[in-house]
Design a protein around this nucleic acid. Structure first.
Length: 851
RNA sequence: GGGCGCGUAGCUCAGCUGGCUAGAGCGCUGCCCUUACAAGGCAGAUGUCGGGGGUUCGAGUCCCUCCGCGCCCACCA
């Protein structure tokens, strides 16, 4: 029955139990269960564009802790895993790894093969879009295999049969269907509009992916000419956008400029007459108090342009360079076309930065720059992963309308946040929303829009009248599939059609992860049993993106929250509270190395110390402690089981055994309550503390009795077995490997499918147990150990007598465990004395003389 | 600029709705090869609970304020 190893070890447990769990389907989702019996988790699909680092292990372990706890509580846990292999980041990684770059004008090359060796300094090889997508499909699964391997080793109790990818056919179908549904209800639309644009990646960027960075800039004071012919000084940090100036603006209450409103000013160098307007957003304290409006220098320009109904005079094109143009033509009227052209020709073709340098020279030559250039540092918008500031260009994009703010805020209130204060991040974001959600990316590897555009007889494409795919035909790729009613020969021909060239924003797909994993409309039976989901675990940095957008989609599609609770995990930081990153040079060893060094249970132990929402310091010392705990668990278990099975039906009759079980019952209640509020860290801390005192005190106390031939040995054996089972279960979510190993020594099946301990049952087994008995015994033992330690004697050193002075109540409790105390302390005589001042006097036996 | 969070032993962190001499682990010191465990065990020392006010019989715990750190949001002139 019981099968104890000679020398237990935690090494090798990962491989052993991974294989067993896999073979037994321990974590397989049983889809016969009803919604009420299921606990479903909306897994964050890690992006495969990078490498998993300890921070990932940290937060993914948190989810697994909850999954394992819920499973033991009797829930059928639906815990899939996804890979986010869609989006700009993945595309960029594949480009770097394969040394390629997409050139959409190239035709497909069926003979193209991935280069064997890639020189990072060499110029990337241009390839066609279909070739690049093939390359992605070839390379990305390798990334995913590495991720799977790590997650399985960490011990995530995922059902791998439900794995999905965000670029896979299922996700594409869901994304396209979700898009068409919104379009049908006019919740999505296509429009031409100024768009934030990354000039390096040459794609539009959504508000959610913006990051402000402080960068150096400089005020340049330009000499415009006012209506009276006098100079009108205007400060700008973007003098190169002067040719794109369409107006100047000041605050309506600003008395300095009130007389000028409604009149015109003339731009320097280009001689364009622009209106002088008033708007609330103009800040009298910034610069000279009057600003130039360009199309477009920043998002304020966009606001002014829209609210003041200004024309577009765009100069920056999609590659970030100033475009060629002819002055004097409609829209580009000027008082001196020749001079404007001469000046502009110096700028055309240059990047914004180069153009800025040149225009400053031109302005200086003509004395149109007033005073010195004043360097400043100011926040500028970047794509969060980009290296150059964003520009704003006008282009056609698909948008999803945001629901009104009140509805979103109500959803935020409805959702249970762990920790609760994270709701504020959501509310901040909702309150700051501007415009609609641009879901278009001018990229190659992504979910295509299920749309084509008609080309008229003259060869002009009508980009505002899309031909949409039938839902039944999804997923489609418009670049290879043909729209209803057309044939392939008509592609890009007059009278034919053109494919929508763009792909969806990665969040347009990720916002549907609940629909993807639960099988929205593809698998109504599964959907019924799992949606709305129970839990969304995620990091706080993506509340504004992933969490928010998922709430939006579910609000529209199902008029419900996608899940009832959101568990937000913190970051891992270094001891200086800096976020871990490669560039900061503070990145610890990779998770595989850490697991090899300390064991998966130990790494999980470290992770479990991070409370929800709290950042935690990376600390390998914690892993060492976790490793020690796992080893201790093996040894203590070996001992507890080594006393032999209790006789069938043996009851726990000894007061100290009952006392221990009563205390254990209190621990079960505490750990359960903590888990129920996602405070796994507390559950672990309490269990661990209890376990150590269990080993130090209780095991020492019962050791001799349990091995003895006395009838009371049965009580000890029964209590040891019961306590061990309970402790193992409490540790099981945290240390799945070592607990499963011990479980297998004397129990059938997996501990991870066993029932969570029940405090009521424990109390019944403990009968009238008094927690004081064990507490007093432990106190006396500590005093005895202290005496031996101070006398520099062995813990086995015999004690002649111990005199305990204490209250009658405590002495009464001690009396019930006197035999065990004497045995554990090697105490010959134990005396009690009632007294106000508790004390323990220890008289050691004389040290035997040694030579 | 607005908001959220954090600041407790050298280090990493607990201290839940205010209540006995402020806790744990690591590290440090000392002791012990105890037949579950020496990659271990036992014991010990260590803190003006960021500063200053206030409420209270009583505050690490509540209120105000200041300081430091981190993060989120914010219209780049």
């Amino acid at each position: 029955m019981t099968n104890l190893p000679e020398k237990p070890t935690i090494d090798g447990l990962e491989a052993k139990w991974r294989a067993r769990w896999d073979a037994d389907g321990t974590y397989r989702f049983d889809r016969t269960k009803t919604r009420a019996e299921v606990f479903s988790i909306d897994t964050p699909p890690p992006t495969v564009s990078g490498h998993l680092h300890p921070g990932h292990v940290f937060s993914y372990t948190h989810t697994d802790l909850v999954a394992r706890y819920q499973r033991m509580r009797g829930k059928e846990v639906f815990y899939p895993m996804g890979w986010d292999d869609n989006g700009l980041n993945v595309e960029r990684r594949v480009q770097l790894l394969t040394g390629t770059i997409v050139d959409p004008t190239l035709p497909y090359d069926p003979d193209f093969r991935r280069p064997e060796k890639v020189d990072p300094k060499a110029r990337p090889v241009p390839i066609s879009r279909p070739n690049f997508i093939e390359l992605c499909e070839e390379v990305v699964p390798d990334f995913e295999t590495a991720y799977h391997e790590l997650w399985a080793t960490v011990g995530l109790s995922v059902d791998w049969d439900h794995t999905y990818t965000t670029i896979g056919p299922k996700a594409v179908r869901m994304s396209q269907r979700g898009f068409l549904r919104l379009l049908a209800r006019d919740l999505a639309y296509r429009a031409e509009s100024p768009t934030l644009w990354d000039v390096d990646m040459r794609t539009s960027v959504a508000q959610a992916e913006l990051a402000d960075r402080e960068v150096p800039g400089a005020y340049h004071k330009l000499r415009f000419t006012g209506p009276d012919g006098q100079p009108l000084l205007i400060d700008t940090t973007r003098p190169e956008l002067l040719p794109a100036c369409v107006a100047v603006v000041a605050h309506p209450d600003d008395e300095r400029f009130q007389p000028l409103f409604g009149q015109t000013a003339t731009t320097p160098l280009f001689g364009v007459e622009v209106p002088i307007l008033a708007h609330e957003l103009a800040d009298p304290d910034k610069g000279t108090g009057i600003a130039m409006i360009c199309t477009f220098g920043d998002t304020t320009d966009v606001t002014w342009w829209r609210e003041l109904s200004l024309p577009v005079r765009a100069v920056v094109q999609r590659d970030g360079r100033l475009r060629p143009l002819t002055w004097g033509e409609p829209g580009w009227e000027t008082t001196d076309a020749a001079a404007a052209q001469a000046a502009y020709d110096e700028l055309a073709g240059k990047t914004a930065k180069q153009a800025q340098a040149r225009i400053v020279e031109l302005l200086t030559e003509q004395d149109l720059l007033d005073g010195e250039i004043r360097p400043i540092t100011h926040p500028v918008k970047f794509w969060e992963n980009g290296t150059r500031p964003l520009e704003i260009v006008t282009s056609q994009q698909w948008f999803i309308r945001y629901p009104d703010k009140a509805a979103m805020l109500a959803r935020g209130k409805e959702l249970a946040w762990w920790p609760d204060f994270m709701r504020v991040r959501f509310e901040n974001w909702v309150n700051g929303l501007v415009g609609d959600w641009n879901i278009t990316r001018q990229r190659f590897f992504g979910v295509p829009f299920p749309a084509w555009y008609p080309i008229d007889a003259d060869g002009v494409t009508d980009f505002l009248s899309p031909i949409l795919a039938d839902e039944a035909s999804l997923p489609v790729d418009p670049t290879t599939d043909v729209p209803p009613g057309y044939d392939e020969a008509q592609r890009n021909q007059p009278g034919g059609f053109a494919a929508d060239p763009d792909v969806m924003d990665t969040w347009a797909t990720s916002s549907l992860t609940p629909q993807i994993v639960c099988g929205w409309e593809d698998d109504p039976d599964l959907f019924e049993r799992t949606f709305p989901m129970d839990m969304r675990p995620q990091a706080h940095e993506i509340i504004r993106t992933w969490l928010f957008s998922t709430v939006v989609r579910s609000h529209y599609l199902h008029d419900t929250l996608p899940w009832t609770s959101a568990a937000i995990s913190g970051f891992i930081v270094d001891p200086d509270r800096k976020k871990l990153s490669k560039s900061a040079g503070n990145m610890p060893d990779d998770p595989v190395t850490l697991i090899e060094r300390h064991g998966a249970d130990a790494v999980r132990y470290w992770s479990a110390n991070g409370r929800p929402g709290m950042d935690m310091t990376f600390d390998e010392g914690q892993m060492k402690i976790g490793r020690r705990l796992a080893i201790k668990l093996l040894n203590a278990s070996k001992f507890a089981l080594g006393v032999g099975q209790p006789a069938h039906g043996a009851a726990v009759t000894e007061p100290v055994d009952q006392s221990m079980l009563v205390r254990l019952a209190a621990l079960v209640e505490e750990a359960t309550a903590a888990f129920d509020r996602y405070d796994y860290a507390r559950a672990l801390e309490r269990t661990e503390a209890h376990f150590w005192s269990f080993c130090d005190d209780y095991l020492e106390l019962v050791k001799n009795r349990a091995y003895s031939e006395e009838p009371t040995a049965e009580s000890a054996k029964a209590a040891l077995h019961l306590a061990l089972e309970v402790l193992l279960k409490l540790f099981a979510p945290f240390l799945p490997y070592v607990t499963e190993e011990v479980w297998s020594w004397w129990r059938e099946g997996s501990i991870h499918r066993s029932d969570w301990p029940d405090a009521t049952e424990l109390r019944e087994a403990a009968a009238i147990g008094d927690p004081l008995v064990l507490a007093v015994a432990a106190d006396v033992l500590t005093e005895v150990r202290r005496a031996k330690s101070e006398a520099k004697r062995s813990m086995r050193a015999p004690v002649d007598k111990v005199k305990v002075t204490d209250t009658p109540e405590r002495l009464g409790a001690l009396d019930k465990v006197a035999l065990d105390v004497r045995s554990a302390g090697a105490i010959d005589q134990l005396f009690f004395a009632k007294g106000e001042e508790p004390s323990v006097e220890v008289t050691l036996a004389p040290e035997p003389s040694t030579s």
